[in-house]
Design a protein around this nucleic acid. Sequence first.
DNA 1: TGCCAGGCCGAAA
DNA 2: TTTCGGCATGGC
Length: 278
Amino acid sequence: MQLTEHPSHLKIRGAAPFSARQTFTCGQCFRWQAQPDGSWLGIVDGQAARVWDEDGALCIAAPRAQFDALWRAYFDCGTDYAAICRSFSVDDFTARAAAFGAGIRILRQPPWEALCTFLLSQCNNIPRITAIVQRLCEQWGEPVAHEGRTLYTFPAPEVLADASPQALAPLRAGYRAPYLIAAAQAVASGALSLEALRGLPTADARREVMQLRGVGRKVADCFLLFGLHKLDAFPVDTWMKKAAAYYGGDMKRFAGSPVAGVYQQYFFYYVREHQLGK
DNA sequence: TGCCAGGCCGAAA
DNA sequence: TTTCGGCATGGC
């Protein structure tokens, strides 16, 4: 990683090119907002920032101290994604998926936020998930002024734990709203510690989080990958199996790999963008 | 109108 | 153990 400090922003170059659009729209997060100038506005742990890519480098308009404290880890700057891509390219299909997803970083999102957004993702589509999450934050999060705009933090579990299903009705999250409340109550009460799950082996953490209502294998694996950065979590989806079978990519060979989650995300993005496996 | 969207739950076989 | 309908909502 090579960091250059400019007057208005920081520029970070890694071994692999960074793509803001791919990273923010590949389906791993639902909070970054595209701006007319091609940059993206986001807020993580109450800290807002504008991000864009330039010649494959990650550019971020944030103070250096904030970068060191938050964004360096959030954008997973210490991981060699070029090496991951190389290890991924074992046949024609995987090579195409690896090349297509090469700009993606697996973000280290706050666990609570990742859990909630993927609870909301079930049987849903990305634009609607994004809209529901936005309404959730606007209604229950804290406003943060940034560059003349107002962004909203992701609401804390303590806030949602006290909410009634009726109060969440404006989200139009449907049957997922009670799942959200149940998860908030579990976390807020201390019955479930998401941070404690970090220290557990992936299988044990999966078993724990699946105790929550509305958390099945799929939501659990997305939480493990995007919320706890457990790269060996490997969601096995219907679409992936279909696509793998149709295109000859054998996804089973990647299961259990230390970076299986990265592979699955490249696959998901590639398959989705090319509307494969339908 | 019908189908699908990064599923999960509970019942029935 | 597998299969299947129901569950809210909204876009196409």
